[in-house]
Design a protein around this nucleic acid. Structure first.
Lengths: 210, 210
DNA sequence: CATAATGTGTTGCTTTTGCAACGGAAAATA
DNA sequence: TATTTTCCGTTGCAAAAGCAACACATTATG
């Protein structure tokens, strides 16, 4: 996450300072948490990978966000407006810290340093989420599967400062992230290879164009 | 916009308190502003309607956000990460206040009340944007044009607390907002009518299902 | 008021995407 | 290690969406 706020040190310094917290360990595919209206839970992923997933009424699965080490998530960052189930699924073994925010923008009743520091930095952290969401929207508004794939690859390439990078998703999950059918995406992936846009070696993509 | 912060009164009280501002009037279809990296402009729509629009390399147009009276917009709320042109277009005659934020989360150098009050409420305002963006993502991840239309209609219906409501867009713009082809959307709209999901009288939609 | 510009509604055709199904590879698990 | 489960890669077919073109309505504008 791109922030001036040093989450890593913050966690090291303060993670034990608040009494109102819980630390839990999850194994792969377990449900870490479900998003519930007005609870204002805040979670920190100390270790592992997890996805925020939504299931709609048609049974379609959408990966809304992907979290890795030190990611912050929870209802604090996501005002819930619909009835759709929103849950965080562990993609690997995970260690997670849970906090409840009585009031997002004010101090913890216990007046602990953790909540205080976090409150100060919350605006910046939320703005980071906004950036992520806008990127997501940009991807989703692309009209074809090809453009979604290329857009996503170019994003990863920019982040890694390299035309070669690992996919953080399985291909099945990538399809759910781009909101397209998996087999149609595989077909397009093949065409992208044939048309010389990309190379794919296992989980690694190499961008060839420009 | 759904916020505890009373924008209307805030504008009345403070819009003249900061020296670093500009008030401008635009006529329909004029470009209100272009989003530029690191400028941190903040705009308040005093009157009229405007859209945040993106044009991609294929010439596709996407309406990213729709603004009406008292809406806040500008780079402050949108961390720019791509090269795509992002601009705000007046959809009617508009009056807009412009401010520049030297530093989003700190006080204006002039220490004016406007920036101070806004700083205090910025987290809440950003959270409102997050809500909007999440709804947008939810719409865009729907797999079919039908589901996008129904999802959008149900959203408007919830907002207006009525199964009957006016569309805030022309149908051409609605297609750009849902990121679908206009004629395909028209076709689907016709089918929705035929299948008894909606009624459409001019600009007004009536939801018939459930 | 006449004319231009924009928006609506429609359609035939083409392309893209989704769906369903399957075999084999890889990974997780007993 | 054997076995089950998940993931990858592919394909034929059906459905949906995009494209292009047009007539007509409505709205702006000289």
């Amino acid at each position: 996450m791109n922030t001036n706020f040093d989450i890593e040190n913050f966690i090291l310094d303060f993670s034990n300072s608040c009494q109102k917290k819980q630390k839990k360990v999850f194994s792969k595919n377990e449900v870490v948490t479900t998003y519930i209206k007005n609870r204002n839970q805040l979670c920190i992923l100390l270790d592992g990978n997890a996805d925020l997933v939504r299931y709609d009424l048609n049974g379609n699965r959408t990966i809304v966000e992907h979290f890795s080490k030190n990611a912050l998530f929870g209802e604090v960052f996501y005002t819930i407006t619909t009835n759709n189930e929103l849950l965080v699924e562990a993609k690997s073994n995970c260690t997670v810290l849970f906090y409840i925010y009585d009031d997002i923008f004010h101090k913890c009743r216990n007046n602990c340093k953790f909540h205080q520091t976090l409150s100060e930095n919350l605006p910046q952290l939320i703005l980071n989420k906004v950036t992520d969401l806008n990127m997501r929207i940009e991807l989703l508004t692309k009209r074809s599967t090809r453009d979604k794939l290329l857009g996503y690859f170019s994003l990863l390439s920019t982040r890694k400062l390299s035309t070669s990078f690992e996919l953080p998703f399985s291909l099945t999950d990538l399809a759910d992230y781009l909101s397209v059918d998996r087999s149609a995406m595989m077909r397009e992936l093949k065409l992208l290879k044939e048309d010389g846009f990309i190379e794919k070696i296992g989980n690694r993509i190499i961008l060839l164009y420009k």
